[in-house]
Design a binder for these strands. Structure first.
Lengths: 236, 236
DNA sequence: GGTTGGTCTATTGTCTACAGAAGACAACTG
DNA sequence: CAGTTGTCTTCTGTAGACAATAGACCAACC
């Protein structure tokens, strides 16, 4: 039996920061001061800085040299990039992963789905978010393509960062369970083995209501993003 | 006039490490000892560790907790992932970016191509590699999709890490110039404005000869990767 | 002779401390 | 009163030092 190494402070700090971002304790645009966090997390600055580098690479934090770190604030163009890239990665994953070959990968989906359901029923809002990320990652992971999965996970976290505050306000316990039901249905379609059916299910899966009036809430309107937004709305 | 901030040690260390990886001074599987590098680079450990975190996120370095860092050693499955994902990202970028709208983005391509040519003619092998990365990135950047470009760049570096030693041995000055000519042709096709033509040019663009006998040089044969390798070879 | 136990060294993980820059605020000058 | 300049504080960037662990090597025992 292999005993597991105690998690490093870098890892703990990364996870703690991630939770602060997903929970909305740190909001887009907020300044992140190192000394404040060292006190809050009980970690010294070097490991904290390493953790912040990781989150910077993931696009969740933006660092300005000599001027500090900020929670990334997405523009409309960023959202356009995220949504379009996510769709392509999903498409690729489904084509590679459906029908499912390895049963063990499916087990991972079911495990995440179960935990998701448990969190939803107990009203654990942050847990639902984390398990939803894990569920979607595991679905992408059906492709057996680790890089695809990691790219997807990164994109997904960026999107959640943007949706954070809205969701927190909007989500009631029922809608949490609704999310779970949608995910259950998706997994059933996947197990049916038809890539086309999964594509169809996914097309209606993404919650696009957060795009309502988005151009008034965020800046950075590029020609591409405005054209895309128009297309998305007409397509609906 | 805005004076630019002096580059941080983290940035310098990241770039230096990247060069050591691309030039083959650090080879896949090599152990990376922090104290050795601090002496070599003249940097203290904290910034070096941050740089290594960045490269770890990029997939170029693998860290084992309490056991040190190693230059990532790719398996056949990794190569399968890289090649397939790169192709999809390229496809997406071409569909978004061709025909070209923003002239400034094309200028970036031309600038990189020019530098690439200069390095090739002067036999600057490492410079050619760096400018080739920049050229391809700028081509993907024609899409105006930063996340797409960054994902592509990361994938590209991982692939170069793997090809490193072969290329260094094989590449003569002529083949450097040949590469440049291929890139020039690609840019001409792009400027012609036909996405289909670009797809066709790209299909024959990737140098797949490094796959010859690859399964004997690397480990990690997954069912997916073996099936893919078979398809690629039959397709040729 | 092989295996198990212990010690020892090299290397990582973490913390504290210091140097330097950026921004805020106040005082001074036109 | 507005603009500018100087100082002061806060924060980041970096260095060096200490603690703790993993692996190697050697010896003793079965």
């Amino acid at each position: 039996m292999r005993i597991e190494a105690p998690p490093s402070m870098v890892q703990l700090a990364t996870e703690a920061l991630m939770r602060m971002l997903l929970s909305g304790k740190l909001q887009p645009g907020d300044r992140v001061v190192e000394n404040q966090l060292t006190q809050e997390l009980g970690v010294s600055r070097p490991p904290l800085r390493e953790a912040m580098r990781v989150l910077e690479q993931q696009g969740l934090i933006t660092q300005l040299p000599r001027r500090g770190a900020f929670v990334t604030q997405l523009t409309l163009h960023d959202i356009y990039e995220i949504v379009t890239l996510r769709r392509e990665l999903e498409r690729m994953a489904v084509d590679l992963g459906v029908p499912v070959r390895e049963q063990s990968r499916l087990q991972r989906c079911h495990a995440a789905l179960d935990r998701h359901g448990a969190c939803a029923r107990s009203g654990d809002w942050l847990g639902v978010l984390e398990q939803a990320v894990e569920f979607h990652s595991s679905v992408i992971g059906l492709s057996g393509h680790r890089r695809l999965e990691e790219a997807y996970r990164s994109i997904q976290l960026q999107m959640l960062l943007c949706m954070g505050m809205n969701r927190q306000a909007r989500s009631s316990d029922e809608s949490l369970v609704d999310d779970w039901n949608r995910h259950r249905r998706l997994l059933e379609v996947i197990e049916s083995g038809s890539p086309e059916a999964v594509h169809a299910e996914l097309a209606g899966h993404g919650d696009m209501t957060f795009l309502d009036g988005i151009e008034d809430r965020v800046g950075g309107h590029s020609p591409e993003s405005l054209a895309w937004l128009k297309r998305v709305r007409e397509g609906d």
